Simulated scan of single mutants.
Amino acid sequence: MTLFTLAACVSQGKPGQNGTPAAAGAADSQTAAILLEKDTPQPRTATYNCADGGRMTVENIGNAIRVVGSDGLNEEMPAAPAGQNSRFGINHDAIVIDGREALVMKANATPVACRR
């Protein structure tokens, strides 16, 4: 439903036509791309490259995710809080997924940004 609403809001003309400044058309396109990316549901399985040089594969298994990392991590993390699909955690570890990005937080370590 959001995708159809978003498509209706994007300008159909070329920037600069009908009194629309060229910069406004470019900004509309960028906003649409950002909204579409954030509204895109997570795939069942996705691989992320992380800023620390590591990689992880995240499998969506409904009310939890299974994380397999290049560091040997193999862990299942439930939704936290239950019922949502972007924040997962167990004990002192957590992953927040936002569009194509994931923030990995482990106890006593600096959070690491990852991107698929």
Results as ranks from 00 to 15, higher is better:
Phe4Gln: 15
Phe4Val: 14
Thr5Val: 11
Ala7Gln: 15
Ala8Phe: 12
Ala8Cys: 09
Gln12Gly: 15
Gly13Thr: 15
Pro15Ala: 02
Gly16Pro: 07
Gln17Asp: 13
Asn18His: 14
Asn18Pro: 00
Ala24Leu: 15
Gly25Ile: 00
Ala26Lys: 09
Ala26Val: 04
Ala27Tyr: 04
Ala27Cys: 09
Asp28Ser: 06
Ser29Glu: 11
Ser29Asp: 10
Thr31Gly: 14
Ala33Glu: 14
Ile34Arg: 12
Leu36Gly: 07
Glu37Gln: 10
Lys38Trp: 01
Lys38Cys: 06
Asp39Ser: 14
Asp39Cys: 10
Thr40Val: 04
Pro41Cys: 03
Pro43Thr: 06
Arg44Pro: 01
Thr45Leu: 06
Thr45Val: 08
Ala46Gly: 03
Tyr48Gln: 05
Asn49Ile: 03
Cys50Thr: 01
Ala51Val: 09
Asp52Gly: 08
Asp52Asn: 11
Gly54Glu: 04
Arg55Val: 08
Val58Thr: 05
Glu59His: 07
Asn60Tyr: 06
Asn60Ser: 02
Asn63Ser: 14
Asn63His: 15
Asn63Cys: 13
Asn63Trp: 04
Ala64Pro: 02
Ala64Val: 05
Ala64Cys: 09
Ile65Val: 07
Arg66Trp: 12
Val67His: 03
Val67Tyr: 01
Val67Leu: 13
Val68Asn: 07
Val68Met: 07
Ser70Tyr: 06
Ser70Gly: 02
Asp71Met: 14
Gly72Leu: 10
Leu73Cys: 08
Asn74Arg: 10
Glu75Arg: 10
Met77Val: 10
Pro78Lys: 02
Ala79Gln: 04
Ala80Leu: 12
Ala82Leu: 01
Gln84Pro: 08
Gln84Lys: 06
Asn85Gly: 14
Arg87Pro: 00
Phe88Met: 00
Phe88Val: 01
Gly89Ile: 03
Gly89Phe: 01
Ile90Met: 06
Asn91Ile: 02
His92Leu: 15
Ala94Trp: 02
Ala94Asn: 12
Val96Ala: 04
Ile97Tyr: 00
Ile97Gln: 00
Asp98Lys: 10
Asp98Pro: 01
Gly99Gln: 08
Arg100Ala: 08
Glu101Thr: 12
Ala102Ser: 12
Leu103Tyr: 06
Val104Glu: 00
Val104Ser: 03
Lys106Tyr: 00
Asn108Met: 15
Ala109Arg: 12
Thr110Phe: 05
Pro111Ala: 05
Pro111Tyr: 07
Pro111Met: 00
Val112Ile: 11
Ala113Thr: 11
